[in-house]
Amino acid sequence: MIPTHIEHIGIAVKDLEKAQQYYEEVLGMKCYAIETVEDQKVKTAFFQVGQTKIELLEATAADSPVAKFIEKRGEGIHHIAFAVKDLAIRLKEVEQKGVLLIDQEPRAGAEGMNIGFLHPKSTFGVLTEFCEKREESV
């Protein structure tokens, strides 16, 4: 299994609006999408940098994974996401190699992606996400 590219880097922030302002006014980047993912209790903002995206993550509830992350570790890099083909198969492959999974099966994420997270206990402390563009139903 070889990822096709780094899909995005997720950054946990307390205030999405302030963080977005930094990326736009200081770094000169343009936010191209803001989306709330209800089941993950998170609001996201996306920026494109070459082939890779930056995903800012703001918790929408105190019990969300992002809120817990910020409470424990503070703002900063939350995860790295790799684009893969055949996500469900990739998750099973890494699990067979001894990697602990957060997601046993793909689930819906932002930007029309199916996603699956690998547990940082198995990935040298880095929360790792696999992503695959959802196929549009015909």
Score class of each variant (00 low, 15 high):
residue 83 A to I: 05
residue 118 L to R: 03
residue 91 L to T: 01
residue 115 I to C: 08
residue 78 H to T: 00
residue 61 A to I: 01
residue 91 L to R: 03
residue 98 G to D: 03
residue 99 V to N: 03
residue 110 A to I: 04
residue 104 Q to S: 15
residue 79 H to A: 01
residue 98 G to Y: 06
residue 77 I to G: 04
residue 125 G to A: 07
residue 79 H to S: 01
residue 83 A to N: 13
residue 118 L to I: 03
residue 104 Q to A: 15
residue 71 E to F: 14
residue 81 A to L: 01
residue 68 K to H: 12
residue 87 L to G: 04
residue 99 V to S: 06
residue 117 F to E: 06
residue 93 E to R: 08
residue 73 R to K: 14
residue 76 G to D: 03
residue 105 E to P: 04
residue 100 L to H: 15
residue 76 G to Y: 09
residue 112 G to R: 11
residue 68 K to I: 02
residue 105 E to L: 10
residue 120 P to D: 09
residue 86 D to R: 13
residue 83 A to D: 12
residue 90 R to E: 15
residue 93 E to M: 10
residue 85 K to Q: 10
residue 120 P to R: 03
residue 88 A to I: 05
residue 75 E to V: 10
residue 67 A to W: 06
residue 70 I to P: 00
residue 93 E to P: 06
residue 84 V to P: 06
residue 95 E to M: 04
residue 97 K to M: 10
residue 89 I to V: 15
residue 125 G to Q: 05
residue 58 E to C: 07
residue 100 L to M: 15
residue 67 A to L: 05
residue 62 A to Q: 13
residue 69 F to G: 00
residue 116 G to L: 07
residue 63 D to M: 01
residue 66 V to D: 02
residue 114 N to G: 12
residue 114 N to A: 12
residue 105 E to I: 12
residue 106 P to E: 08
residue 105 E to R: 13
residue 64 S to R: 02
residue 103 D to I: 04
residue 94 V to Y: 10
residue 118 L to S: 00
residue 118 L to H: 02
residue 87 L to R: 03
residue 97 K to H: 13
residue 98 G to S: 11
residue 105 E to K: 14
residue 98 G to A: 13
residue 114 N to K: 14
residue 103 D to K: 01
residue 63 D to T: 02
residue 88 A to V: 08
residue 64 S to Q: 07
residue 123 T to C: 12
residue 78 H to C: 02
residue 115 I to T: 09
residue 104 Q to C: 07
residue 99 V to G: 10
residue 77 I to T: 12
residue 95 E to K: 13
residue 83 A to G: 09
residue 90 R to D: 14
residue 71 E to R: 14
residue 101 L to N: 09
residue 120 P to G: 03
residue 63 D to H: 01
residue 76 G to A: 08
residue 66 V to N: 05
residue 85 K to W: 14
residue 75 E to L: 02
residue 85 K to R: 14
residue 107 R to H: 10
residue 80 I to S: 02
residue 94 V to D: 02
